[in-house]
Design a protein around this nucleic acid. Structure first.
Lengths: 353, 353
DNA sequence: TTGAAAGCGCTAACAG
DNA sequence: CTGTTAGCGCTTTCAA
C-alpha cells in the first residue's frame, strides 16, 4: 500500500488472492479449515497488500474488544506505574491490551475516561476512584461491566477489591513519629474524598490517641490539592511558618515527601534535625533520597497482579465470587525520621517493622 | 440497562423515544437539526436506557479513530511519563485519546504494539524507537500513517522528529568528569541500538578526545540490557571489581544512576568521594537523591508538547512540512560529582552550564 | 474446502 | 424537521 491509498480491506486481499472474502477471514481466524495452497496464496496477498485487520470491525461483530481499562490517579507516580505493570503482565498472558488512564485525581476527568472506556467496550475496568462516592463505578456495574477496585478499601462484599490496610499504615507512621518523641506533627494529605487519604489520616490520629495524645492538638493537617511533588514542595513555606512549629511530618505518599524534601533543601532547612519526615508507599526512589526516606511499604506490584487476576476471573468465570483482598503495610525506617548521632545518618539501611 | 441485558443500541433508544434511528443519530451528532421537544425525548431515552455509543461502530463508519499512539521505552521512567504528559495535554485540546505503550526497549514488543495501533487505526504515532533500524516506523509510514520520532535524532528530513542533542549532552557529562580530574571513567550505557545511547557515548568519547585523552583507555563501558534502576544496581559489584578502577561514572539516564547510587550505598561505597556520578535527563528526583545527582537536563515536558503539535499538524494540515526540532541539553552540577570540602556537599544547589 | 450473504451499530446522504 | 437506506470491514452461518 502506498501513501495516500485507501487502506486495504479483507476484500482487496480476497480479490488479489482470487478467493472469496470469507476464505480470507478463515485464513485469519481458522487457518486449519483452509487448504494449504489457498492459505499460502492468501497469506501472500496479505503481505503484498499490507493488509491489517481493523479492530473496529472485529469488535463490532464480536460485540466486545480485547482490552481492559486501568484508571489510576497519577501516571507520574511510580506507585501507580508499578501497579499498572503488574496488571499488564497478567493481562498480556490473556492477550488483552491495557488502556491506561490517569485522572490526576479529578472526578471530572475520571468520568470522562470511564465514558471513553465504555464507548470502547473494554471488557473490564480496574480503578482507583478519584472520589469517594463510587458513582462512576456504580454506573459501570449497573451496565454489567466487570470492575475491580485498585488499592481502594471497601466494606462492600459485592465488588472485587485489592487494597492495603491504610489505617494501619497511617498508624505505623504515627506511632513511629510519636515514639521518636514528636508531639507536633504536620500531615501532608490529599483530599479526604480519596479513600486512602482518609484512611491514613484515621490511622495517624488513632496512633496519637493510643499514645494518650490529642490528635486535634498534635496534628496540623495540610490538604494538598493533589498528591504530587509540586504540591509537596509548594507547601513548605507554610509549613515552616506554622505557629504549631511541627517537628515531624507525615506525607500521604512518597511523591509528596519527595517534593517536601526538595522544598526544605531549597530553604536550607535540614532533615531530620529540624523536621523528621515519613512517607508512604516505599517506591523505588524512597531509599535513595537525601536523606533516605522512612516510608510505609506497600506490596505494589503484587497488588497489581492480584487485581488483574481478579478481573480476569470476573470476566471469564461464570462462578466468579467477589473478593476483597487485603495486604499488610510495613514500616521501613530510614534516615529521614532518625535522630542523628555518630551511628546515625547513613549507617541505617532501612529497618522493617 | 440491567446486568446481563444486552447493551442498548441506538435502535433501542429510537424505539423508546418513538423516533427513527436516524433522528437519534442526529441528536448525537447534529443536535441543532432536531426539534427541541424531540431532542429532549431522545435524550431522556438515552438516559433511561443507559445507551453509550460504540466507538467501534463510529470508527468503522469514519474509517479512523479518535486516538493517537505513543510508544515509549519505559513507563516507569519519569522521563517518559513527563513527556507523555506533554503529548497528552496537547492532544486533549483536539479531543484525541492517547494510547500509551511501553516497549521496555524490546524490539519484539515494539512490533507488537505498532501492529496493535494500526489495527486500532490510530490517527498517528509518536515513538521512541526501541531499535535503531526504524523498520517499524518505515512500515507505518509506507501505510500513510503520520509518525513523529520522540526524543530520537535522525538525519532524515522527511520525517518529523523532536530530540535533544545527545552527543552534546554526552560531551557535557564527559567534559565535566574530565575537568574534575577523572581519567578512569565508567559508562553505564544501554544497548547501542538505541540511538540515544549511541549518541551519548559518542559525546562522551569526543569530550575525552578533545581533552587529549584516549577514550579507549579511559572509558570502560558497561552495556546494560535496559536502562533501569535494577540494572544500574546489579552492575555495581562488577563496577567495583573493575581492574580499571574507575573514579567517575556516567550513567546514560537518571534511573540507572538511581540504581547505581542505591547499589553503592548498599555496599557502603561512598559517592562522590570514591566515585563521582553523573546522570542524564534531570528528572524530578535527581536533585533529591543522596547525594544530589549531577545530571544532563533535557526539556522533557516541552519535548512532549512539541512532538504532539507536530503530529497534529501532520495529521490535519495538508501543507504539512516535516520538521526536525532540536533542543539543547544543559549540565546541572550537583553533589554526586563534586569534590567534597567545607563548602562542598549540600551547599551546592545545582549549577547550570 | 470454498463461496454467498446476513448483520454487528452507527453515520450521512437523500427523500419526504 | 424526521424517516429511510446504504454501507463502513469483518465474522459466521449455511449451502454448494
Amino acid at each position: 500500500m502506498s501513501i495516500g491509498a485507501r487502506r486495504p480491506t479483507i476484500r482487496d486481499v480476497a480479490e488479489r488472492a482470487g478467493v472469496s472474502l470469507g476464505t480470507v477471514s478463515n485464513v485469519l481466524n481458522r487457518p486449519d479449515r483452509v487448504a494449504l495452497a489457498t492459505r499460502k496464496r492468501v497469506l501472500d496477498a496479505i503481505e503484498e497488500t499490507g493488509f491489517v485487520r481493523s479492530t473496529a470491525a472485529y469488535q463490532l461483530r464480536a460485540g466486545k474488544s480485547r482490552s481492559v481499562g486501568v484508571v489510576i490517579l497519577d501516571v507520574s507516580n511510580p506507585f501507580f506505574t508499578e501497579m499498572a505493570r503488574g496488571i499488564e503482565d497478567v493481562c498480556r498472558d490473556s492477550d488483552l491490551v491495557v488502556v491506561l488512564c490517569s485522572t490526576d485525581e479529578l472526578a471530572e476527568r475520571e468520568a470522562r475516561y470511564l465514558r471513553l472506556l465504555v464507548e470502547q467496550r473494554v471488557q473490564g475496568v480496574l480503578i482507583t476512584p478519584a472520589g469517594r462516592k463510587l458513582d462512576g463505578v456504580e454506573r459501570l456495574r449497573r451496565q454489567g461491566m466487570p470492575v475491580v477496585l485498585l488499592d481502594s478499601r471497601t466494606g462492600r462484599r459485592d465488588i472485587c477489591a485489592v487494597f492495603v490496610d491504610d489505617v494501619k499504615g497511617g498508624e505505623l507512621a504515627g506511632r513511629h513519629l510519636v515514639e521518636a518523641g514528636h508531639r507536633r506533627i504536620a500531615f501532608l494529605n490529599g483530599p479526604l474524598s480519596i479513600r486512602q487519604c482518609a484512611d491514613r489520616r484515621r490511622g495517624l490520629r488513632q496512633a496519637l490517641k493510643r499514645a494518650g495524645l490529642d490528635p486535634d492538638r498534635c496534628v496540623s493537617e495540610y490538604h494538598l490539592g493533589a498528591l504530587t511533588a509540586t504540591q509537596g514542595e509548594a507547601v513548605v513555606p507554610k509549613l515552616l511558618a506554622d505557629p504549631a512549629r511541627p517537628t515531624g511530618v507525615f506525607c500521604a505518599n512518597d511523591v509528596v515527601a519527595l517534593g517536601l524534601l526538595s522544598g526544605l533543601r531549597r530553604l536550607d532547612s535540614s532533615t531530620p534535625e529540624q523536621l523528621a519526615v515519613v512517607g508512604y508507599d516505599d517506591v523505588r526512589f524512597a531509599a535513595m533520597l537525601s536523606p533516605s526516606l522512612t516510608s510505609v511499604r506497600q506490596p505494589i506490584y503484587e497488588l497489581g497482579r492480584t487485581a488483574g487476576r481478579l478481573l480476569l476471573d470476573e470476566m471469564t468465570n461464570p462462578d466468579h465470587r467477589h473478593q476483597q483482598i487485603l495486604f499488610e503495610p510495613e514500616l521501613v525506617v530510614r534516615d529521614s525520621s532518625s535522630p542523628l548521632g555518630p551511628e546515625g545518618r547513613g549507617a541505617r539501611r532501612g529497618r522493617r517493622r
